[in-house]
């Protein structure tokens, strides 16, 4: 896997220092995955599962109280965790040019006091040292490419003059201006209406095909991830609990949490009297004991599950699951 991968994450652990002198709180533990060029990994989980901090650590943009406590990240042959911050050969040179990120809320990711065109032009100026007017023209082309009508006019608009969907398109234009080889999309459609969400998903897939980008697509919504992912990793309480090709994961989940997550998803055309729920709540990272993080909520858990933590173990079919009692794939389907 790792020789063809564009990005390879191995045993990544992230912790946040608490208030006062309390012990560091783990936010992600032993996270491993890799993405090949042109492929999409969907990273799914509920709030607090560690998916966003994992994404931020790829960009090395963790907040000041967050720290990478272990593991390695190799991007395009470089060990990014040991790169210097500054300079074209450092993280600054990678970010925006070779790896880019889009966020849930384009309203807060765009600069409110600069026109959309200027913000995109700035990317060209910084990374390609283009002259201002050339950069402006490239920005207009980029806005046109992401489906913004009347791009000349829109380049002169401020973010607040654009609708939510248009802002998300503008942010995609900015992120993809340098044709990065990796796009990290963190809940990019969560704030959008469902008809607009559908358009943005189409746009991401289309641009990915055109640029042969690797995409890390993060969402809490399994159905959204199913629209774009080749492979899916499910996170729970800071760990990847299952990883599989998208089709197999949805057809035959092996981790009880994955199965429960799929079952809770209300599906159009399947009205139900009871809504399948997962009992209990996600364990608090500050007081987590030993054992599997899902054991408290798992219908299959026994003494072993409460005692020790199952490791993510790969099987023959490109699948991996961290569970002592994985569901039989043959029994389902």
């Amino acid at each position: 896997m790792s020789d063809t991968a564009l990005i390879d994450v191995e045993g990544l652990s992230i912790a946040f220092s608490g208030e006062d002198n309390s012990a560091a709180i783990p936010a992600a533990e032993d996270v491993s995955f890799s993405i090949a060029p042109g492929k999409t990994l969907g990273l799914v989980g509920e709030s607090g599962c560690g998916k966003s901090v994992t994404a931020l650590s790829l960009m090395r943009l963790l907040p000041p109280n967050g720290r990478i406590t272990g593991g390695r990240i190799r991007f395009d042959g470089r060990e990014t965790l040991s790169l210097p911050e500054a300079g074209a050969a450092g993280m600054e040179g990678l970010r925006g040019r070779h790896m880019a990120m889009i966020f849930q809320d384009p309203g807060s990711a765009l600069n409110p006091v600069a026109t959309v065109g200027d913000q995109i032009a700035e990317v060209f100026e910084i990374h390609y040292h283009l002259a201002r007017d050339v950069a402006r023209q490239s920005a207009v082309k980029m806005l046109d490419r992401v489906g913004i009508p009347d791009p000349e006019l829109r380049a002169r608009s401020y973010p607040h003059q654009l609708s939510g969907g248009m802002k998300q398109r503008a942010m995609i234009a900015m992120a993809l201006a340098c044709r990065p080889s990796l796009l990290i999309a963190d809940e990019p459609t969560t704030a959008l209406d469902v008809t607009v969400q559908s358009q943005i998903l189409d746009l991401v897939v289309e641009l990915q095909n055109e640029m042969d980008m690797a995409v890390l697509f993060i969402s809490h919504n399994l159905a959204v991830v199913a629209q774009v992912a080749d492979e899916v990793a499910v996170m729970y309480a800071g760990r990847i609990v299952e990883r599989a090709p998208a089709r197999d994961l949805f057809a035959m989940p092996r981790h009880p949490y994955t199965q429960a997550l799929i079952a809770t998803l209300p599906r159009l055309g399947h009205p139900q009297q009871r809504f399948p729920a997962i009992p209990g709540t996600v364990p608090d990272a500050r007081v987590r004991g030993k054992g599997c993080g899902f054991a408290e909520r798992c219908p299959l858990a026994d003494a072993t599950c409460h005692e020790s933590e199952p490791a993510l173990t790969a099987d023959a079919e490109d699948r991996a699951v961290a569970c002592f009692k994985p569901l039989e794939t043959s029994a389902l389907s």
């Binding site: 999409t40 939510g164 008809t195 559908s198 358009q199 159905a223 629209q227 998208a246 949805f250 998803l265």
Partner: peptide, 28 residues
């Protein structure tokens, strides 16, 4: 109908673009 069509579902596989339910956005 457009709203229903736009709801993402699992089991349809990866999308290939172009099947937009309703173009544009809700008007102001």
């Amino acid at each position: 109908r457009a709203l229903m069509k736009a709801v993402p579902r699992i089991g349809e596989g990866r999308r290939h673009g172009g099947a937009t339910a309703a173009p544009g956005e809700p008007p102001s």
